[in-house]
C-alpha cells in the first residue's frame, strides 16, 4: 500500500505501511537487577534463543515505579532482542521511554487482532480497505527464511532452536541433546536425543531422520517418549514422524 505523496514520486525511497511480527515482554517489576538474574536463569544456557527479534515492552504489569530505560534496553540487547517500543506505562514512564529512543505504542494490541488505533485517520481507512485480513501479529513466522543447518554433533546438554524455520542436522543428535524447530526437523544421522518440531504449534511439521532412536519426539505439543519402545521396523531405521489429528504417526522412509 503506497502512500501517495504530492507531486512526483521520489527515486530514492517509497513510504509503505508494514506489519512487524513482534515478541512482547510483559514487564512485571521495575527491579532491573532481578530481571537480569531471571533472564540469565531462563535464557543464559541458550544464548541463541532470540535472534535479534524486535520486541515491545508492555509496562502495564510493572506498576508505577521509575524505570531506567537505558539500562533495560542494554540488558535486553544482551539477550539478543531489539526493544523498539513500549506500551501501557504511566505518562512518566512513557516519556522516559521516548527519551531513551523507544516508540510509544500506547494502543497497540498484543493479540492477533489488528487495531490500527495508532495510525492517522487516512492510514486507518486504507488499512481497513486494503488489509482486512492482517496476519496474526505475534505468531507470524518469517515465511521465506532458509533452514538452520547444523553440521557438528549435538551432544548431551546441547540445544538448538530453529526459530520460525526448519532445522537440518548433518551430524548425530545424542541422548541428552535437544533439537527444537518451529518447522520441520531433518537429521541426516542418528537421532538419539529429543526432537521437538512445530514448537509453536505448527501441526504440519515433520521429523525426518536416517536413524530413529529418540528419547522423545514431539510435534505441535503431541509427544512420545522412549518409555514405549519403537517397533523393530522403525527403531534405528530411516523414518519420518508426523501428526495425523491428535496422533503421532511414524513411518519408515523407503527411498
Amino acid at each position: 500500500m503506497t502512500v501517495a505523496l504530492a507531486g512526483r514520486t521520489p527515486a530514492t525511497f517509497e513510504i509503505k505501511s508494514a506489519n512487524l511480527p513482534l515478541v512482547a515482554l510483559l514487564l512485571k517489576s521495575s527491579d532491573l537487577q532481578l530481571l537480569e538474574q531471571e533472564l540469565q536463569g531462563r535464557f543464559g544456557d541458550a544464548p541463541d534463543f532470540f535472534d535479534n527479534d524486535p520486541l515491545v515492552i508492555d509496562l502495564a504489569p510493572a506498576g508505577e515505579g521509575e524505570i531506567d530505560f537505558g539500562t533495560l534496553v542494554r540488558l535486553l540487547k544482551r539477550h539478543r532482542v531489539m526493544p523498539v517500543a513500549v506500551k501501557g506505562g504511566t505518562p512518566g514512564q512513557m516519556e522516559a521511554a521516548v527519551q531513551a529512543g523507544l516508540a510509544c505504542a500506547q494502543d497497540a494490541a498484543l493479540n492477533p487482532t489488528f487495531h490500527p488505533g495508532g495510525l492517522s485517520q487516512r492510514e486507518r481507512e486504507e488499512a481497513r480497505e486494503e488489509q482486512p485480513h492482517v496476519p496474526p501479529v505475534v505468531q507470524a513466522p518469517p515465511v521465506h527464511s532458509c533452514a538452520l543447518v547444523i553440521d557438528k554433533p549435538l551432544r548431551s546438554g546441547q540445544q538448538v532452536y530453529a526459530r520460525g524455520r526448519d532445522v537440518v542436522v548433518l551430524a548425530m543428535v545424542n541422548a541428552g541433546a535437544e533439537v527444537i524447530a518451529d518447522g520441520h526437523i531433518h537429521v541426516y544421522a542418528p537421532l538419539r536425543g529429543k526432537a521437538i518440531a512445530g514448537a509453536r504449534g505448527n501441526a504440519q511439521a515433520r521429523i525426518l531422520t536416517l536413524c530413529l532412536e529418540p528419547e522423545l519426539v514431539s510435534i505441535a505439543g503431541v509427544y512420545r517418549t522412549s518409555e514405549h519402545p519403537l517397533p523393530d521396523t522403525l527403531r534405528g531405521k530411516p523414518a519420518q514422524v508426523r501428526l495425523e489429528g491428535e496422533k503421532l504417526v511414524m513411518l519408515p522412509l523407503n527411498p
Binding site: K152, P153, L154, R155, S156, G157, Q158, N174, A175, G176, A177
Partner: peptide, 13 residues
C-alpha cells in the same frame, strides 16, 4: 559415556 558426551560438547563450545 553420557557424561563424556557432555564434556565433548563443552570442549567444542
Amino acid at each position: 559415556v553420557r557424561d563424556s558426551d557432555r564434556i565433548l560438547g563443552m570442549l567444542a563450545s
